[in-house]
């Protein structure tokens, strides 16, 4: 059985032509009149409201969000653009840098390659969800102590993967940590300090 919402797909059939005309008008208006371009942001939202949306419930940092989103929305864009959770960064947007790392069901993944609509009911944790009350996560503290960053852009992603790294008991040597962290690039080259920070937390017995 296909679980797509029957009501919304039949509605789409009937309104398909009208939708197309509306879209076309909006796009022409956008390309033809400069003053409208200034409001490009608003226009984007206006245009995207014509596309079919899906309802999805996401559990992010312990909070449940009931959302209506376009299927093409990545988890990264949803977090940053719609939920204001801008701690997760967009570096490459193609799964090549690690800046967008979040946890789904406790495992680090690249949120730029995840379709949000596929995550119904999954437990998602972002950098904003690591600290408990005012207490930083041990990995966050260790990054501060060891200067595990310079500009800080890659840091949320580094920390999210580092949390998985300290939990993994099979990873203990310097080289193993390096390999485990190889999906997180740092343009500033803070690598040695990042590894020191991870080693430090591991020596303290890992982070629960």
């Amino acid at each position: 059985m296909i679980m797509s919402n029957a009501a919304s797909s039949s509605k789409q059939k009937h309104t398909g032509r009208r939708l197309f005309i509306k879209k076309a008008v909006a796009l022409t208006a956008l390309s033809a009149s400069p003053p409208l371009l200034i409001k490009a942001g608003e226009q984007d939202e206006f245009i995207s409201s014509f596309f079919e949306k899906k309802d999805v419930n996401l559990n992010i940092n312990g909070k449940t969000y009931s959302l209506s989103i376009e299927p093409r929305t990545t988890l990264l864009d949803l977090l940053r653009e719609q939920l204001g959770l801008t701690g997760t960064k967009k570096g490459c947007d193609h799964g090549q840098c690690g800046c967008c790392t979040v946890h789904i069901e406790g495992k680090p993944v690249y949120s730029c390659l995840v379709l949000a609509v596929m995550q119904e009911g999954k437990k998602i944790t972002t950098i904003e969800g690591l600290a408990q009350n005012e207490n930083l996560h041990p990995v966050q503290k260790a990054f501060l102590k060891h200067d595990g960053f310079q500009c800080g852009f890659c840091t949320p992603g580094q920390i999210m993967n580092a949390v998985a790294c300290v939990k993994n008991e099979e990873i203990s040597t310097y080289d193993q940590i390096k390999e485990f962290m190889s999906g997180n690039l740092c343009r500033c080259g803070a690598y040695p300090n990042i590894i020191d920070a991870i080693m430090d937390v591991k020596k303290q017995g890992g982070a629960l």
């Binding site: 679980m3 596309f51 609509v117």
Partner: peptide, 19 residues
């Protein structure tokens, strides 16, 4: 990314039937 329709399937036959 060009917009697309999305559906989720819960059986193998539903998957290939949809395709």
């Amino acid at each position: 990314m060009i917009a697309f329709d999305y559906s989720s399937v819960n059986s193998i036959s539903a998957a290939w039937e949809a395709k």
